[in-house]
Design a protein around this nucleic acid. Structure first.
Length: 339
DNA sequence: ACCTGTCAAGTCTGG
DNA sequence: CCAGACTTGACAGGT
């Protein structure tokens, strides 16, 4: 199995390269010249896009071909008070350049809209802003001219005291979205509410691929905690959600490999928190279990030390290779691993 | 240069 | 029913 690794949003190795500079609405509202204030938002967004390109070039220089784009590329993009503003007019060329770079280098990128995107909500106004937020992310992918293989990863949402009903509401409300939005989504199990099994059921019902987060699973397994259950029963179904997406999009087999998230617990007292680095040993144990049935896999690292955590993990994997542990480091961003 | 409180958005918990 | 937690990078305003 070939595994590619990626990191999230910012680099801790590049200086002054934030892709998430912002302006709060409070400060926007303080500016008297609205026209100038909007231009300032656009300038910040241009900076964020420019830094995103720098980060991706840095990633490619280290053979890293997987990257999660920041959700904060355009400040206040979906704010009510800026509904008349179309940032894509000014930002079109920069988005297009980003997309061209991604395609040229064969990178896999994604977005992860944060916890305001909640399709299980019983509140109509929250549903509406969730759709607007998802639409914003997808409009950025479209401005980059990236195909439908490039996704936004979301969670199911809250349980509101009744998980089965909330899950059914997710299926109904998400299912009612236009295909243009639905076909750009993956569903991920979360660390508090919806387990792998529940998320998988929802993903199967609405026909979107599922992203497995193994750390979330470790802290929220709903009784499916055993490696056996995960690897022999749930994982093959997860793989199938990706295979079916390949068929829907008319792709060849393994053109769109399954994706997982990996991170390590921050501490015993805060097991849900993300540690600075990712521990190699438990991750490799899991990867070896699924290696036989999964030819390609992409693994997003969610660690506080971002790209530095990725490079450190690769060093640790290299050390495991030296000990003859069924692993071969291909380059700085990928490994081959077998059971 | 560094520290602290605040920030557009949601949900859950505990008082 | 409301305040605070959750989580998290970055800004603004202070020293």
């Amino acid at each position: 199995m070939i595994v590619r690794f990626g990191f999230v949003a910012m680099s801790v190795l590049l200086e002054n390269a934030s892709p998430s500079r912002t302006m709060t609405f409070t400060n926007f509202a303080k500016l008297l010249d609205r026209e100038a204030a909007v231009r300032k938002l656009e300038r910040i967004a241009e900076d964020n896009l420019h830094n995103t390109l720098r980060i991706m070039k840095h990633a490619i220089a280290h053979d890293i071909r997987m990257y999660r784009l920041s959700s904060k590329l355009i400040p206040l993009a979906t704010h009510d008070a800026l509904a008349d503003w179309n940032p894509f007019e000014a930002l079109g060329p920069s988005f297009k350049a980003l997309g061209a770079f991604v395609q040229k280098k064969g990178m896999r990128v994604s977005f992860h809209p944060d916890h305001f995107c909640v399709f299980s909500t019983p509140r109509p106004e929250v549903l509406a802003s969730s759709e607007r937020d998802l639409n914003y992310h997808i409009a950025m992918l479209e401005a980059m001219e990236l195909p439908a293989t490039v996704k936004c990863n979301i969670h199911i949402g809250g349980a509101y005291g009744d998980k089965p009903t909330s899950k059914a509401r997710f299926v109904e409300q998400f299912g009612a979205l236009p295909l243009r939005l639905k076909e750009r989504v993956t569903l991920e199990n979360d660390d508090k509410t919806f387990t792998v099994r529940e998320t998988l059921e929802a993903a199967e019902e609405v026909a979107v691929p599922m992203v497995l987060d193994i750390h979330h699973h470790a802290v929220n397994d709903g009784g499916d905690g055993s490696m056996e259950e995960l690897c022999t029963h749930l994982w093959p179904r997860i793989v199938r959600t990706w295979r079916e997406e390949e068929i829907r999009l008319g792709l060849a087999e393994d053109e769109l490999p399954p994706k997982i998230h990996a991170s390590s617990p921050k501490s015993q007292s805060d097991p849900r928190g993300h540690a600075d680095y990712v521990e190699a040993e438990p991750l490799v144990q899991f990867l070896r279990q699924i290696a036989g049935s999964t030819p390609r896999l992409d693994c997003m690292l969610e660690a506080k030390s971002k790209d530095a955590a990725l490079l450190k993990l690769m060093d640790d994997l290299k050390a495991m290779e030296a000990q003859g542990q069924n692993i071969r480091v291909i380059d700085e961003g990928s490994v081959e691993i077998w059971s």
